[in-house]
Write a protein that binds this DNA or RNA. Sequence first.
DNA 1: GTGGCGACTGGA
DNA 2: CCAGTCGCCACG
Length: 727
Amino acid sequence: MTVLVAAIAIPAPIYRLFDYRVPAAAEGLLVPGMRVRVPFGRRRLVAVVAEPPREIETEGREYKFIEVVLDQASVFPADLWALCRWAADYYQYPLGEVLSAALPGPLRRGDDTEIRRENALHISESGRAALETLPARSHAQRAVLQQLATTPCTRGQLLELLPKAAASLRKAMEMGWLLEVPLVIPDGVIGPALAPTPEQVTVVEALRSAAKGFSASLLEGVTGSGKTEVYLCLAADAVTRGEQVLVLVPEIGLTPQLLARFNERFGAGVASFHSGMSENERADTWLRARAGEARIVIGTRSAVFVPFAKLGLIVIDEEHDASYKQQDSFRYSARDLAILRAQKLEIPVLLGSATPSLETLHNARSGRYRHLKLESRVRQTAPPKIHALDVRTRALDHGLSHPLLEAIDRHLTAGGQALLFINRRGFAPVLLCHDCGWSAPCARCDAHMTLHRGRGRLVCHHCGAQQKAPTTCPTCNSKTLTPVGQGTERVEEALRARFPDKRVERFDSDRLRRAGELERLLADIRSGEIHILVGTQILAKGHDFAGLTLVGIVSADQALYGTDFRAIERMGQMVTQVAGRAGRGAQQGEVILQTHEPEHPLLRTLVEGGYIALSDALLEERRMAGLPPFSHLALLRAEATQADAPLRFLNEARNLMLADRESVQVSDAIPATMEKRAGNTRAQLLLQSASRAVLQRKLSAWVGQFDSLPSARQVRWSLDVDPGDLY
DNA sequence: GTGGCGACTGGA
DNA sequence: CCAGTCGCCACG
């Protein structure tokens, strides 16, 4: 008997597609990209049609029917569909899982694709009157009314701009100060452009002159050089042509300014897409972009899968940022997918960074990308010079040397602010017993637990395990427990003690857990109330602190001993980004980098020549070592509770690969850098090839066989194509 | 991923 | 002896 079946992609970690019979009512109507509800095992799942229906010979087999066809057309526009299929092949991940990752939650669960139309909030006559008569202290109330008086927007958009306005908004509604009007999306640009600098004009003109079609351009611009204004000009061009724009950013919560600038210029045409939004809000952006209503979508990694009716430009801000690479399950690079998407759509893509990744620099140098530079800072101050301070033999007060403390004093006295950067949370990374050598090991990881003295706890930063911090050694009862090394908490405390009349604030994920906390502290920095900032990378991201004149980097030496081939590149980016926070106001900034390795050639290159000189040196090293971008990598990882299973599995996989490896190098299977983590033993194996295509072809051939290896059942394995880290 | 099934362990 | 647990398998 022949039946009509369609291959369906199931959202489960299974590499094959499953054939289901097409119900008579759907014959001739079913196309790839439509969602369907199908019985799968005992369950009912929402899955996606992967291939057009076809007639097959049943050969006695019973095929289940598609139970419900949920869509009348593909939910994925053609370019997004092609992107997802490509990504599933390239990252060796099941298509059903990829499609599932591309859909917002409600659609994944089968909700319909109607846009729930929100009303825009406008200010009413009485609202205008109230604005005049509000008491001076009603800041929050005034902010809400003022915002809506200038730019009417939806409730969601308003709360994004004024995160704490929920109560004021409710009050304004009750008082009749607001009118709800069906949302009208403006056709074009609504706000005025700033007066661009001559340099910005040159860059924008150069980008405009690109031939129609695909082009990739690197916009290399130091912090404060005005990359955002360039994005805005090009976005305005696209919007004026009736096209949409996708803007990718590393973490939206850390860059409220960028969102605010786009909102000013494009008003209600801007929609955002990030993990801080509710699933329904994300679905709303997704559907509105698909309908062509959202002109500009600003979002994080997963926004690369937002569909568009007519996408005309993609911007990738801070393109070097590691958060564009997903580090678990579906390990895609949003940057790379965005570039591919632009290529397929034949539209331009603009990559912006002060510290471009080596991959991108290499592409720019080899002429594959255009390379544009913004070299002067908008506010005329010279970029800060980094001074490497040799701390060998110097006394350190909780990690801070005397010259650094002096410099802080000097800058504070001169009315400046200081920023201290340490890439480590907590008080101290190790709590050591001076008598017996006990060092607070984590029971489930090959790591020490970090002392968080404020909370009185030991916390493992790798598995999250916590316990009360002991006051006496648990093995020898001695009272000589000594915190070794320093984290943000310790430096904060040391600075408070040293500068008792100054306000010192810490910026790390522990401190900024509550919503709105970052905004509150940023405001206090701008107003000059905070004198010293101590923090992690959070401080290295796009904030503008006009009064900041000194940046102290407590130590960046860790990267110099690092095992990962990207460690120094990352360190250079971080140091340069954090140094860029200094001296954006009138005064020239000073940057002090404490080190025990002042002679290290790469550190010297960074200090003397800056990030670009460092990247030249690193690229040369990569060329010699045959590492990316001069080769392509994939990492096969395995972990298991049973200690010998991961290596056994990887060796089995290795034998399989060695038998048929073409021009792919297959490394030995080795234990991971931190072999035990969260109770699992971990191991890995590196695959390397000069040819991306060959590597991909071989991976496709191998991946399907891994699950049938004898020890596959004992491990959890994953394949990471273009890994960000090798551990 | 997840539910079902047979095999196994443990308490009564 | 039966219940709860565990590894293994199949899912169209």
